[in-house]
Design a protein around this nucleic acid. Structure first.
Lengths: 248, 248
DNA sequence: TTGGTGTATTGATCCAGGTCAATATGGCCA
DNA sequence: TGGCCATATTGACCTGGATCAATACACCAA
């Protein structure tokens, strides 16, 4: 049951009319350029939960934009351990890490029944050479991801379990607000194990922290969604327990 | 005392003759395009250790390529905690995270006396629109960083202290090999505190792990450099202690 | 040579969170 | 409506690494 999509604004088949165009690739493109872009985009059928959009090691043929629903990216290292690299919501792009050597370095999996726009990279490549605005947009989106990865490394590296969960919840909430959705019941469309993996914790610890935060009256947990009751307290907890760095 | 530069191949003032051109921006550019690029590049004076190339929050005016020496990038979060995001060696580019909104999201600091090529972004921007090959190169480099960040998150998230140190040493060694430098005495040109910060450990733990690895005969530590005596053992330790993921 | 300062190593203690194990809850199908 | 299975919560225990503190080492200046 796609919880998010129920609340989504109407999505159009074309980028020009898509409510997400200011988050997604089309942002800053004039209508002429935009039309060229949307001719490339294939906004396909709904895909069920667990569908793999692409797998680590696959050749890079398309990148994907989330239309509605959600996805995660997973990377498996040499020793066979897997790490969830991110969760993706409407307007987010999947597949940027494939441009380096034309193959995907992680897998992408739908978390729920979702729609994705498929964009063939070979055609995109041609169009990018043609449209400076699109080139700039692409570079900025990638750069943005880079800088968010930095933020994530900060969270993973320096925060304790409560700080990590709090940061995650605030982050998800903020991303909902960016998309014009109500920021407070945050649906947790991924499993606890996914959360735990992403935050580098054990799922037992995730559980414990969630109930602790609930008992403190900061959030209200109910199955797959979290109400943020006291945002300030949550913010406070998201930084508490962060280590002080040794000066160098 | 710039340990790295003593072993560096001769560096030319121009990209065309630079021994690092296949790692750096120029890779895959034909000689005509390359000449246009190198007209932008200002390969300046030596800068001493601790020099800040740009600061978090600065407007994006230049990106930098390491010519010789080394650098680190540091990010300070809202609460004032700082995290080292990466170490950079000849051929590496600094500043990619600034393209998102034309300002730097981290600071860059030289670790030792170093040379950097300065590339003005406004002119680069124009040139990128003109040269598809350069555009492609830029996107690939950024994508590569993205995918390496993923690897780092994996290390930070899933490995214990010994795994982290081992991974770091192997990584530094591999990057030296990529640059045609002898892979085994790995100079640690950053302070222990920097290492600790980067790996999200305490410097005492870094020390302890280094001596433990030394006692095991895997490495030989001497002040600012590490000899890798048993690469296989090091590899083995870099994966040992990594958690098993809960299946989702 | 000595003293001072910054950096690295080592030792002793303690706790957050990992581990193992039991129990609870909810969704689904017969 | 009950039984099954996947997922989530809670409990008890233990260990890796953070913390606090002392000591060692290197480098420089007087």
């Amino acid at each position: 049951m796609p919880a998010l999509s129920q609340q989504m604004q109407q999505l159009s088949e074309t980028c020009s009319h898509c409510s997400l165009r200011y988050l997604c690739l089309p942002d800053h493109l004039d209508s002429h350029d935009l039309q060229k872009l949307e001719r490339l985009v294939d906004s396909g059928e709904a895909v069920p939960a667990e569908t793999e959009l692409f797998a680590q090691g696959d050749g890079l043929t398309h990148i994907y934009a989330v239309r509605d629903g959600s996805a995660k990216t997973v990377r498996i290292d040499e020793e066979g351990f897997e790490q969830i690299l991110g969760f993706y919501y409407p307007g987010d792009i999947l597949g940027f890490d494939g441009f380096a050597d034309q193959q995907h370095h992680c897998s992408a999996v739908a978390l729920e029944t979702s729609h994705f726009c498929r964009i063939p990279v070979d055609q995109l490549d041609v169009l990018v050479d043609e449209l400076p605005s699109l080139r700039q947009r692409l570079v900025r989106l990638m750069s943005q991801v880079l800088s968010e990865d930095g933020r994530m490394m900060l969270t993973l590296g320096r925060k304790d379990s409560e700080g990590r969960i709090s940061s995650l919840l605030l982050g998800l909430s903020r991303r909902r607000a960016l998309r014009g959705m109500p920021p407070t019941p945050v649906p947790l469309n991924m499993k606890r194990a996914d959360l735990a993996n992403f935050l580098s914790m054990r799922l037992e610890t995730v559980s414990r922290v969630l109930t602790r935060l609930q008992r403190a009256g900061v959030i209200k947990v109910s199955q797959n969604k979290v109400d943020i009751l006291d945002r300030d307290a949550l913010r406070e907890r998201s930084s508490r327990g962060a280590w002080v760095a040794d000066q160098s």
